[in-house]
Write a protein that binds this DNA or RNA. Structure first.
Lengths: 145, 145
DNA sequence: CATAACTCCGTAAGCACTTACGTTGATTCG
DNA sequence: CGAATCAACGTAAGTGCTTACGGAGTTATG
């Protein structure tokens, strides 16, 4: 599973590289979200993407270094940093959308071709939600607690 | 996908921790293989597990530090290091088998419960083998080459 | 039989996340 | 209204892999 997800990352990277685009995978979520929904705080992005605020913060750092986004301190709440696309970032995203659309279309196509592995993963996640791994193991091989 | 695989890793870790066993996920492949098939070289293990020799080498380092395996230089071929379980390693593995069996059984059960996501992932991999991501994108959005 | 080509294995660094932990503001409440 | 709690965010370090690279030993070839 990890191997497969690494393979997909790698192949996606190759797509960008083949077109001479300097792009990091982890940029996608933040960039597309900022483009679609406007300025957002780090935590808002984290919640929308279902990752930790730390991952967003790291993406922020590299996106800022690349000059694609900038942040302003929220005047109403000194803890928050509101992230927004710079002009260069907006142009970059505009250039990338066709490629992202293509990638998403390819993802859908593969998903159909392979009989919906994505739904299968959702079911797996659901199974773990119903009963955790540890609980299942405990039930099969009681020992601790 | 990455998130889910990380979740599984985490839950599996919790299983070991709950039983007070000091265990690293990446040990599993090498330990179980050495126990089932006897002394093996780094590259042999890598091929059997379908990972890089580097990953095996890193596991080797940490397993050696933990005193669970040891290596001898192959007298016939000076490049090879043959890895084998130490006495402590063999005892550790013996103690762990029931847990591994339980984990595998739980994996099978979840797999059935969730309508075989594992097969779905194999199909996904197969689809990528038939045509790579870049090729699919190229076909949809010709640009480069 | 020297040299080119290949194989085994190691270290370093990167990737995209995570947890652990601390700092600085905002909010609540007695 | 001051103290305790909570929320937003940052850095450091870890995880389990990967690619890039290099050294040293083995095999093939002209």
């Amino acid at each position: 599973m990890r191997r497969l997800s690494e393979r997909i990352d790698r192949e996606a990277n190759a797509v960008y590289a083949a077109r001479g685009i300097d792009f990091e995978q982890r940029w996608y979520g933040t960039l597309s979200l900022l483009d679609e929904r406007g300025p957002l705080s780090v935590t808002e992005i984290a919640r929308a993407l279902n990752i930790t605020h730390v991952a967003v913060s790291q993406a922020r750092r590299s996106l800022t270094a690349a000059g694609l986004i900038a942040s302003t301190l929220d005047p109403a709440d000194g803890r928050r940093r509101t992230l927004h696309l710079t002009d260069a970032g907006a142009a970059f995203v505009a250039r990338l959308w066709p490629l992202w659309d293509a990638l998403n279309a390819v993802g859908d196509a593969i998903n159909r071709e392979a009989a919906d592995p994505s739904a299968a993963l959702d079911r797996l996640e659901g199974a773990l939600d119903r009963m955790s791994l540890s609980e299942r193991v405990e039930r099969l091989l009681p020992r601790s607690i």
